[in-house]
Every structure is written in structure tokens, then in C-alpha cells.
Simulated scan of single mutants.
Amino acid sequence: MTAAAASGDGARPRPARRPTMKDIARRAGVSESAVSFALNDRPGVSSDTRERVRRVAEELGWQANSAARALSGERSGCAGLVLARPAHTLGVESFFLQLVSGIQEALSARRVALLFQVVEDLDTELAVLRRWWAERRVDGVLVVDPRTEDPRPGLLASLGLPAVVIGGLEADRHHAETPLPVSNVWADDAGAMASVLDHLYSLGHRRIAHVAGMRGLAHTERRIVSLRAEAARRGLTEDEVRSVATDYSDAEGAEATRRILDGPARTRPTAIVYDNDVMAVAGASVAAGRGVSVPAELSVVAWDDSALCRVTHPRLTALVRDTPGFGRLAAQELLAALDGAPVRSVQGELPHLEPRESTGPPPGE
């Protein structure tokens, strides 16, 4: 009776055994020490033996053990990314999918893998970063969602773990005299918000609501501050232009829209700016369900463009940028840091506003 027959038709197949240095030595006809010398590029074997060993290793599909490689001081061939956000907000938001696709494209070109983990909060993220460093699981990390008082750049700098923060740090960090602890790739959120307000103000809107993301994130706070500053520059008060924080989900975007539309008619905003595409689509749906016409009675703007914005009726005015390109830029900066490049701050492209059918003059204009 064969081993396969003895195991039964429903038995789980045995996993293939990973090839070892002993297997390579046996097939190449050399000692295990010669294999070690050849694969680790150390002296002690001839060039012919080194070539033969490497050819056999490739034929067998041999890969170096990551733990052993770490102990020897070699690179892991892996970059890390930890995301501390509610998991339910990730499946519907296209921004991170596009960002990660760009990151992966740049890393793959250098045969660097991406180790990705979602955690519940910032403290857990810090613990993961420390563990990855201690275990030498990653050669460097990409950091997203910078906080207003963010402990991660300082921690990573103290560990000596190369890192790139994706997104702006403190509001004046780019002009500060103190050096950056780690590299930073950022977009001009203040300039983008100014273009949104320019568009709405030129249409005649004077009462504008902002359905923002999570408080404590640097870009959320920067957008709120920028909105207030741009409003004040045009003589608008905080009663006329205000922000509401959410968790970026469609559910909270919809709920924020209901609260805004439930306000007194004389103070109700005539335009709403949403911090992502998902909330903008949810908000437009709430307005339609209440018989509020977009854009005749309410103009809607999405911060990040996506297919959702372009297939919704009416199509949503949105800030457009090359998000995969932003991810590629961040990954390229991390690869440069791994190659010994100095810490630096790099600005990505400024998102540009693409007016579509969801914005128009306010009622009575």
C-alpha cells in the first residue's frame, strides 16, 4: 500500500520540505562548509565551485533562512508598514489600496517584500515596531497617518531603523530649524484646502461644512486650520465655516451629513467638503434621500478622487492626485535611506481640484 493510499483520499497533503545546505552539498558534490562559503560569498572556494553551488541552490529553490540572515547582520529583504486604524474603515477606502500598490511597485523592483500589519491603536503599533527591530524582521519602515504629537519618528530614530513618514509632520516642521528625525514625504494639504475654498467661494458659497477625518492626525488638524484661515481671509466666521470630525467611514460620514442637514435652514451649509471619497458618496446619498438636490441645494466636494466619485450621479467634484505615485515616491525614499542617503523632506505633487457636476452656485444665486 502506498503512503498516499494509506493516508486516505481526504488527508491533507504533506507540505514540500524546504531544501537545505545539506541537499545542495549532496547534489553539487561538495562539503556543507563549501556550500556555506559559496552562498555567503566568503573566500575558501574556487569560482567554479561557487558558480556550481549557486546554480544547484537555484534549481532546488533554496532561500536563506531569515532568522539566520538577521543573526549574520545581513538584510532581511523586507520593509514594514503598520496601520493603526479601525479595520472596518479600510475595506471601503481606496486611498490606502492605491498607496500600497505604488509602494509595492517600487519595492518589487528591488525585490524587497512588504510586511503589512493592521493594529488597534498607536501603542500597539509602537510595540510592533520595537519587536520588528529587535527581531530584525525588517530593514526599514514606512509610517502613515502622522500624529500632531507623534512618538514614532523619535522612536525609530533612536533605534536606528531607517524610516519614511508618509504625510506632513507638524504644521511648521518643514520650515523648522530642528532637523527631521527620519525622512518625510508630504503633500501640501493647506494648499489643497485653499483651492477647494477658492472654488466654492467663487461660486458664491458662504456657509461651508467640512466633514473631517480623525482628530489627532496631523493632516486632519492641518486641513481644519487651513479651512479656518482661508475662511477668515475671506471674511467668513467660524459659524459660517465649521468642521466635524469622523473616523473616515461611510457610516460616520452619513451621520455627520444628517446632523448638518438637520440644522436650522437659515444657517445650514450650502456646501460640504468631505475628507475622503467614501464619506462624500455617503453624504450625497443622504442628501438625495432627504430630497436635497446636489448641486442645486447642496454642493459636495471629495478630498480624494476615485472611481466612486466618477460613477456617482452627479459625478463628484474632487481633489485629484497620483496616489500610487505618492506611494512609489515614499518607497523610493525608503530604499534610498537603506542605501545610506541622508534624512530629508520631500514634497509630493499638489493635488488639483477637478470640478464636476456636484458643485454649483448656492440656492438663490
Rank of each mutant, 00 (worst) to 15 (best):
A4C: 13
A5H: 15
G10E: 01
G10H: 02
P15C: 06
P15S: 03
A16Y: 03
M21A: 12
K22T: 12
I24H: 02
I24P: 03
V30M: 03
V30A: 07
F37S: 13
R42Q: 14
V45L: 15
S46Q: 14
D48I: 14
W62I: 08
N65A: 03
N65K: 04
S66Q: 09
S72A: 11
E74N: 14
S76W: 02
G77H: 12
L81Y: 07
G91Q: 06
E93F: 03
S94L: 06
F95L: 06
G102R: 03
S108L: 11
L115V: 13
V118T: 15
D121H: 11
D121N: 07
E125Y: 06
R130N: 14
W133N: 13
E135N: 15
V143D: 09
D145C: 15
L155I: 05
L156P: 03
L156C: 06
L159M: 00
L159K: 02
G160F: 01
L161T: 00
V165A: 09
L169Q: 05
E170T: 10
R173I: 08
H174K: 12
H175L: 13
H175Y: 09
E177W: 10
L180V: 04
V185I: 10
A190K: 04
V196P: 05
G204N: 08
H205T: 12
R206Q: 07
R206Y: 06
M214S: 15
R215W: 13
L217D: 12
R223T: 04
L227V: 12
A229V: 05
R233E: 14
G235T: 06
L236G: 04
D239I: 14
V241E: 01
R242Q: 13
D247I: 13
S249G: 12
S249T: 10
A251T: 14
G253M: 05
E255M: 05
A256I: 07
R258C: 03
D262C: 11
P269A: 02
P269W: 04
T270I: 11
Y274M: 02
N276T: 02
N276G: 04
M279N: 04
V281G: 00
G283V: 01
A284R: 05
A288G: 12
G289R: 09
V292F: 09
P295A: 08
S299W: 05
S299N: 08
A302P: 10
A302E: 12
D304P: 13
A307Y: 13
A307P: 06
C309A: 13
P314K: 09
T317L: 14
A318V: 07
A318G: 02
L319N: 01
L319K: 03
R328G: 09
L329K: 11
A331S: 08
A331C: 05
A341T: 08
P342M: 08
H352I: 15
L353F: 00
R356N: 03
E357T: 02
P361H: 01
P363S: 00
G364H: 01
